[in-house]
């Protein structure tokens, strides 16, 4: 059986996941949004032929991986005649929504950690499948993803602690109670 679900459902259910993956891979600038658009356009084209029992999210994440590579190629090509200009700042461009500075921390991770984290933690792909996309062994992917997460937790924990002292951001933290349990802390709120 091929797909009979409305495509809109795929956009609603997986749009955010795919955007996070694209941002982690390409930085939080326009490249990530181009990759998101190309991913969903390609998915829309293929949608009627897709097997009904496909894991749609994993499928979209693999399409996003290919589109991110395309976007990177185009960026590199465009960059050749203008190589006197400063390096395109897309890794550093954070257009809001990153009060905690964690997106910036993702951009600063070593490439393998960043990609492993993108496809495994954000995209939900198993380590073995992530290894097929980015090379290396599943074990090395597991290590890279874990190392990346460790860095992000440290940044997030530090910022979360700062937020406790700022009333404007405290509200936001209260709305999302689950991460407080997941972030190792001492009783007085200091991250370990």
């Amino acid at each position: 059986m091929t797909m009979t679900e409305p495509f809109e459902q795929a956009v609603q259910r997986h749009g955010e996941t795919v955007l996070r993956v694209c941002r982690a891979v390409l930085g939080p600038g326009p490249d990530a949004e181009d990759a998101w658009s190309e991913t969903f356009l390609a998915a829309l084209r293929s949608w009627p032929e897709l097997a009904e029992d496909t894991n749609v999210e994993a499928w979209l994440v693999r399409v996003a991986h290919r589109k991110a590579i395309d976007v990177t190629r185009v960026r590199t090509r465009r960059a050749i005649p203008t190589d006197q200009l400063p390096e395109r700042p897309s890794r550093e461009t954070v257009e809001g929504g990153d009060e905690q500075g964690v997106w910036a921390a993702v951009a600063a991770l070593p490439e393998r950690q960043r990609l492993a984290l993108a496809y495994h933690h954000l995209g939900g792909l198993p380590h073995a499948e992530t290894a097929q996309l980015i090379g290396g062994t599943p074990a090395s992917v597991r290590r890279a993803a874990a190392d990346g997460m460790k860095t992000l937790r440290r940044v997030y924990g530090a910022q979360g602690d700062a937020a406790d002292r700022e009333p404007a951001q405290q509200e936001q933290v209260r709305c999302e109670p689950t991460h407080r349990e997941s972030t190792p802390r001492t009783t007085d709120g200091e991250p370990r």
Binding site: T17, Q100, V102, L122, G124, L152, H179
Partner: peptide, 18 residues
Amino acid sequence: PPPAPSSGPAIVEEMLPL
């Protein structure tokens, strides 16, 4: 949408808001 069962830990989505 229902919570995606296969996506990574919810913590990482909270850390990386959109």
